[in-house]
Amino acid sequence: MTLTLTVPPGAKVRVRITNENGETTEIEVEPGETVTITLPAGSTVRVEVEVVDPDGRKRTETFTLKP
């Protein structure tokens, strides 16, 4: 399973991925970048995406991906 994120110009994104064992991976994606994350097959993962807009506003979306 893959997750692809494209960050709009001016925004910053931090992604936290937590697996079933509670292990967390965190990455930051710079403005204008596209990143593809390969998620472990057969695992349920929690993905938290934090977006910081150019004006400093933050918003966070959290979702769970199941196999």
Rank of each mutant, 00 (worst) to 15 (best):
M1N: 06
M1I: 12
M1Y: 12
L5F: 08
T6V: 10
P8W: 14
P8Q: 09
P9W: 07
P9F: 09
G10R: 07
A11T: 03
K12W: 03
V15D: 00
V15C: 08
V15Q: 03
R16D: 04
I17L: 10
I17M: 11
T18N: 09
N19D: 05
N19I: 14
N19L: 08
E20C: 14
N21K: 05
G22F: 06
G22Q: 09
G22P: 09
G22A: 09
G22E: 08
E26G: 06
E26P: 13
E26W: 06
I27S: 09
E28K: 08
E28Q: 11
E28Y: 03
V29L: 12
V29I: 07
E30D: 11
P31E: 09
P31R: 10
G32N: 10
G32A: 12
E33V: 13
T36S: 09
T36M: 10
T36R: 06
T36D: 08
I37G: 12
T38P: 07
T38F: 13
T38D: 09
L39P: 05
L39K: 03
L39Y: 10
L39C: 13
P40I: 15
P40C: 15
A41C: 15
A41H: 09
A41K: 08
A41G: 13
A41I: 12
G42S: 12
G42H: 11
S43L: 10
S43F: 09
T44E: 13
V45N: 06
R46N: 04
R46V: 14
R46P: 01
V47D: 00
E48M: 03
E48Q: 03
V49N: 00
V49L: 04
V49H: 00
E50Q: 03
E50R: 01
E50G: 00
V52K: 02
V52N: 02
D55S: 04
G56I: 00
R57K: 10
R59H: 13
T60W: 12
E61K: 07
E61N: 02
T62D: 15
T62K: 02
F63N: 15
L65S: 00
L65Y: 14
L65F: 15
K66R: 03
K66N: 13
